[in-house]
């Protein structure tokens, strides 16, 4: 593991908060705070996992790391010149175009220069196992074929920091093994990676460190074992609470 205390993080979030546009009313407009108070650090070469239940702000956090949105509170410090990109599948696909043209279009959307994406076409076709189908319109593809193509294009990007949102295996069953292996290879190379997931098993096996987010607040950051223990405890407590709530409701219903 690389994170010594003396080492400078390449990205540091301090007490970051962000709200989405309010409910649209002229009077009584409201702000929805997706993130309230998040602090975390990412060190060069490490894989950082972000765990939390659905809808606690994990994806918003990734958008912020990608520089697509900016915080309303707190600060983000990023190493100069560092580029962070989302692993986006099927970005900008146009159904009526052939797979080959979509490779160029999607690749350019992901920031790859046209020339370099063109040079990678054979490699992408091979990885996606599409063969001659590549010259047919994407709208004629099955969901699995489309996913294979999208994945094979997306993994061509080579940013300083790779951001992955819940896409650890894609496509039909046979391709899932392959895509998983490819991603594991990328993640275990020396690249800095941030992965978002609500699945503890996946994060435990891949990540050097974890951050736990609950309701827009970073609750814990550290070794996967420690963070996951806290996360599990929290889930247990919630379950008990819910059970109690259900029992209380049942009792009240019985009394009336």
């Amino acid at each position: 593991m690389i994170n010594g205390s003396a080492e400078q993080p390449i990205v540091a979030l301090e007490n970051v908060g962000m709200y989405y546009a309010s409910i649209r009313r002229i009077i009584n407009a409201r702000r929805i705070w997706a993130l309230k108070d998040v602090s975390l650090k990412l060190f060069a070469g490490e894989t950082l996992g972000i765990i939390g239940r659905n809808g606690v702000g994990k994806s918003t956090l990734l958008l912020m790391l990608a520089g697509i949105i900016e915080p309303d509170l707190g600060t983000i410090k990023k190493g100069p010149g560092l580029k962070a990109s989302l692993l986006s599948l099927q970005a900008g696909f146009v159904g009526d175009l052939t797979g080959r043209k979509n490779i160029i279009l999607s690749g350019m959307f992901l920031g790859l220069p046209r020339r370099s994406i063109k040079a990678k076409i054979p490699e992408i076709i091979e990885m996606s196992e599409l063969g001659e189908v590549i010259d047919r319109p994407v709208s004629t593809y099955s969901a699995g074929m489309k996913a294979r193509l999208g994945f094979s294009i997306a993994v061509q990007i080579d940013p300083d920091i790779l951001l992955i949102d819940e896409v650890l295996s894609v496509g039909d069953r046979s391709f899932q093994q392959k895509s998983k292996a490819i991603l594991h290879e990328i993640i275990s190379s020396h690249k800095s990676v941030v992965i978002v997931s609500h699945s503890p098993e996946i994060l435990e096996s891949l990540c050097d460190r974890l951050v736990w987010i609950e309701d827009g607040v970073s609750k814990a950051e550290g070794e996967p074992d420690d963070v996951l223990r806290m996360y599990y405890d929290f889930l247990e407590q919630r379950k008990d609470k819910d059970k109690n709530a259900v029992q209380n409701a049942a009792q009240q219903a019985g009394q009336t």
Partner: peptide, 13 residues
Amino acid sequence: NLVWYKTYADIAA
């Protein structure tokens, strides 16, 4: 380049 390629792609579509 991306603007032109997307334009070309939409016209082709």
